[in-house]
């Protein structure tokens, strides 16, 4: 056991400041344990979201020493405990209280993305055949736990607050999972280009770096979607062809 200091952001929609707490850190403790211990010892109204405490639900996202991370998967002994550990809420979303932010925008965005629309079943009993090789990529995307760390780190949302024009890496991954689903027949390219702002992404790969599920967000989801959009809307030959046919 060693005593460690934690600078935790306390505040609400009106603003806030860091409060320093000292608590005992034992072997294997994660930052979420430390926050809970502080809550039980001295700050019962310290607000924090959490559920599974095993990196599977994506609730306890925060910025630890400035990096977007899951509190339940960040071991204290991996941090320099000779200095205070800074714990603050996600920056890309408005604070509700302390470490809890208003992530409702994400749920509203998802609702606007066209749902899964399968082709007719392959078999009489209403089922389909799919080969494992054909779903490996989609399964990678479906590992997403919706922690929104990728949304938090993305400068388009974090620094430029383009929440109205850009859906963020999480929903490019979601769209990619639908677009690359072997059974899906829906077309989502037009809105990706027009209203969902895929062009804003300039492939800095920050989202891929922070993903706790190690999804290769940029390379496997966003770039292929960009390619499809470019292919559809910016290919000069196709553009000419559309003009000749009188389609806009």
């Amino acid at each position: 056991m060693i005593a460690a200091k934690f600078n935790v952001w306390r505040g609400d929609t009106g603003g806030g400041a860091f409060t320093t707490y000292t608590t005992q850190i034992g072997e294997g403790m994660v930052v979420l344990d430390a926050v809970h211990q502080i809550q039980a010892e001295s700050a019962p109204d310290l607000a924090v979201r959490w559920n599974c405490k095993a990196g599977k639900c994506g609730s306890c996202s925060a910025e630890i020493n400035g990096k977007p991370r899951l509190m339940c998967m960040t071991r204290c002994e991996d941090l320099p405990l000779d200095q205070p550990v800074t714990v603050q809420p996600l920056k890309a979303f408005k604070p509700i209280k302390d470490l809890v932010t208003d992530v409702s925008w994400n749920f509203a965005v998802k609702k606007k993305i066209k749902p899964f629309k399968p082709r007719p079943p392959d078999h009489q009993d209403g089922t389909w055949s799919m080969q494992q090789e054909d779903i490996d990529r989609v399964q990678e995307f479906r590992k997403c736990i919706e922690c929104f760390l990728c949304q938090d780190v993305c400068h388009v949302l974090r620094d430029h607050a383009k929440h109205d024009e850009f859906i963020g890496p999480r929903f490019f991954v979601h769209t990619a999972a639908l677009e690359m689903h072997p059974l899906d027949t829906e077309d989502r390219l037009s809105e990706l280009q027009k209203t969902q702002g895929i062009g804003y992404c300039n492939i800095t790969k920050c989202c891929t770096v922070v993903c706790p599920e190690h999804i290769t967000i940029t390379d496997n989801a966003i770039i292929p979607l960009k390619e499809r959009v470019v292919d559809r809307f910016y290919d000069p030959l196709k553009k000419l062809w559309r003009k000749l046919l009188g389609k806009s």
């Binding site: 809550q39 019962p44 310290l46 607000a47």
Partner: peptide, 10 residues
């Protein structure tokens, strides 16, 4: 439960 009603885990 010290504090107010806003997101108060206590």
């Amino acid at each position: 439960a010290p504090g107010n009603r806003e997101y108060n885990p206590g």
